[in-house]
């Protein structure tokens, strides 16, 4: 029974969709919409880290915001501990938010400049829990210790911290309600490389100590490889590949994943960038192939069929899902 509990995924996302209404021109009454997230599904096991990668505009952040109910989803299910977050209202939603917290990209703009550090960290406790003053203070003190900030810094304002310290504050704030799932949206992208290593180590330590589960969004594939147990690759709102870390990085299957991995500058050899350049000479265009595979126009393997029928995500081997007609 206990083992069952452990094995069950903490987060189950099913067929999540987010659409944004657009008007094609100001005179037309007909509404059209952009499918920013187009039916994505994945699970995250308790205590694991799932990476969400893709180019900008692929819908990573939109998906994360919809999962956290910071953006209204158009359909689908988001089960956290077997509770569908998308169905919750008011007080229930407020209670559920304590279990799911967000770490944002920009440590500069995501902290209220007029609040002191301890107020920032305490804010989720104030608004989401009913703990008394003493207990809240104790939690804040403990958090300052665990993210590596000094107690005398509690009274400072955000501008008096360095970028890395501000991100530590953002992490402390996210952990204050003792969440189970933490969504890190490009949490280290704005930081310098040396500070990035410090924050990544902190996130790993916290995960080991507190049993946290991370949904980790990043465009840096090296960081994703280091941090994540499994990886979901998104392209224009769809999942094109989903596999565990070993398989995704050592044997990527989808041509888009391969291109993405090839594009990262490597340390050892000067790789021939012209190859990638030719493959990627076109950039993603919205709604170009409404019916077919969205990667069609950039894909080196594309066949006429790809233009007609959108490939479904299929399991090619245990735990490795790919959405491509050319991969069986």
């Amino acid at each position: 029974m206990q083992a069952d509990e452990q094995d069950r995924p903490l987060l189950k996302v099913r067929n999540l969709r987010v659409e944004f209404a657009t008007k094609s021109n100001i005179f037309s009454r007909q509404k059209s919409s952009v499918k920013a997230v187009d039916g994505i599904s994945f699970d995250i096991k308790r205590g694991e880290t799932l990476g969400l990668v893709g180019e900008s505009g692929s819908g990573k952040t939109t998906a994360a915001l919809a999962i956290a109910r910071l953006l209204e989803a158009s359909g689908g299910e988001v089960n956290l501990n077997n509770v569908d977050l998308l169905q919750l209202e008011r007080e229930d939603l407020r209670q559920a938010r304590t279990k799911l917290q967000f770490i944002f990209q920009d440590p500069y703009s995501s902290l209220n400049p007029r609040k002191r550090a301890e107020e920032i960290v305490r804010e989720p406790l104030d608004s989401l829990t009913d703990f008394d003053q003493v207990k809240r203070q104790k939690i804040v003190d403990n958090l300052f210790d665990s993210v590596g900030l000094r107690h005398e810094q509690k009274k400072l304002f955000p501008h008096q911290f360095s970028g890395g310290q501000r991100q530590r504050l953002g992490i402390a704030r996210a952990l204050s309600t003792n969440p189970e799932l933490v969504i890190c949206d490009e949490a280290v992208s704005a930081l310098d490389v040396a500070v990035q290593a410090q924050i990544l180590n902190l996130l790993k330590d916290l995960q080991a100590n507190l049993g946290l589960t991370y949904l980790f969004i990043s465009h840096d594939l090296g960081v994703v490889k280091h941090m994540c147990d499994s990886v979901v690759v998104m392209y224009m709102g769809k999942v094109v590949e989903h596999a565990n870390r070993e398989q995704l990085f050592s044997a990527p299957k989808h041509p888009y994943t391969k291109t993405l991995l090839n594009a990262v500058p490597k340390l050892d050899v000067a790789l021939d960038v012209t190859e990638v350049q030719n493959q990627m000479s076109k950039s993603a265009t919205e709604n170009s192939f409404v019916n077919g595979c969205k990667f069609f126009d950039r894909c080196p393997l594309s066949q006429p069929k790809c233009k007609e029928v959108a490939p479904e995500l299929g399991e090619t081997q245990t735990g490795h899902w790919v959405a491509c007609h050319m991969i069986s």
């Binding site: 180019e55 993405l260 090839n262 594009a263 990262v264 960038v273 990638v276 990627m280 000479s281 950039s283």
Partner: peptide
Amino acid sequence: LDVTVQAQIFGLLKD
């Protein structure tokens, strides 16, 4: 920029 675009820009600069 995205990694794919970065690869294009680097390729372009080298060319």
